[in-house]
Nucleic acid binder design. Structure first.
Lengths: 204, 204
DNA sequence: CCATCTATTGACATTGATGTAACTTACATG
DNA sequence: CATGTAAGTTACATCAATGTCAATAGATGG
């Protein structure tokens, strides 16, 4: 098995990191643990073992275990808002390409881990961590509204319906899409196809 | 503060339950804790305090903490499959009423707690507990296919798309629908309206 | 080379969840 | 009323996660 490789002992010396690097490595490890093994796997010991530091060192950098979890949520929420911002740009530069928009949002929720993050936040009740998402969502709504401004006064209502539609669906697909598609014998991108086909229903 | 009130001592005597009653009370309490406070709140002590027994007594009835969790998952999965079965009956007796079908599925995921349950199972990786759902989902697909058998050879594909659509959406709505609707200033049943409106797109 | 700063560690304490064993007592049955 | 079964409790042990603190050791400036 070759457990406990000489993670630090390879050189026999400690590896001293700049705080920013230490935090970044820890958060990357924590995200990997969250996505692959669930929220209960994100512990100080597990993260420390992955990046070769002790749990006390993580407390030194994040203040507490809750501080690490909070920083992880902030990090992933920032990535999600960035992805939504990129989706806005993608839409502005190339409107009328629903599949590209759908892929951008679905990838953020699936591979970016936003789906599992949102589920974790919702189950644990830490809803305040979702607050930065509010602005990103409203930017997305505004961008879509501008693109389809000619549609009349019902535009805002239709656009919020579209955003609610794609976000809820992408979230559901990221968290339980795989087993559900397996039950139905459907292909991996069945959900994306459906959303891409229905999205014009809202916008046109 | 008046800690440790005479929980049992109110009568001065123990309350002896038949095993089936003890298990039912414990599972009801565990479900309430899961829905209101998340998976980490479902502990032997928390459940025991709610129903007035010790944590050792719960181990006596369920074998272990994992046994209680497993029984909770089974109980909630059974309720979900029952709800899906009822949706099948509802559809057979009154086809062409998408909102009623949508409400039945959404209520199962939201008020029944199936949404939080599914998120918990997905995050923790205990996918085998979803196995009983497979049969219920396939029954639902078959029932819808029979109802719309005249639609041609693409029927099965369209029906599985519809089931995937409503299930993923109901799940997403149950777990993160409330904060998302708040961000978008949308009404509580916005998701249900959207699904009810789009469902005929698949079936007709 | 020396001194200072601080990232890092090791050892220890604490807490909560879980598990085990022996004892108690409610209840049914003779 | 006597008795056996099992629901229920008490007391204790264990383990993992978290937290605290003094000591160690890289890095950098003088």
């Amino acid at each position: 098995m070759s457990i406990d490789g000489p993670e630090i002992g390879a050189t026999g010396k400690r590896r001293r990191r700049v705080p920013e690097v230490a935090r970044r490595e820890a958060l990357a490890s924590a995200r990997r643990l969250l996505i692959t093994s669930g929220p209960t796997a994100v512990t100080l010991k597990a993260v420390g073992d992955e990046i070769g530091v002790t749990h006390a060192n993580l407390i030194h950098h994040f203040g507490s275990a809750a501080g690490l979890q909070s920083a992880l949520m902030e990090s992933m929420v920032r990535d999600l808002t960035d992805a939504l911002g990129a989706a806005v740009e993608q839409l502005r530069s190339n409107p009328g390409a629903p599949r590209a928009l759908v892929d951008a949002v679905f990838d953020a929720f699936d591979q970016g881990g936003a789906g599992r993050l949102a589920a974790w936040i919702a189950l644990s009740g830490d809803l305040q961590h979702l607050e930065p998402v509010r602005a990103a969502v409203r930017d997305l709504v505004d961008a879509i509204c501008e693109t389809f401004a000619a549609e009349g006064e019902q535009t805002h209502h239709r656009v919020t319906s579209a955003v609610l539609f794609i976000a809820l669906y992408a979230f559901g697909d990221a968290v339980i899409g795989a087993p559900l598609r397996d039950m139905l014998d459907r292909e991996d991108d069945a959900g994306r196809k459906i959303v891409a086909r229905l999205l014009p229903t809202f916008l046109f």
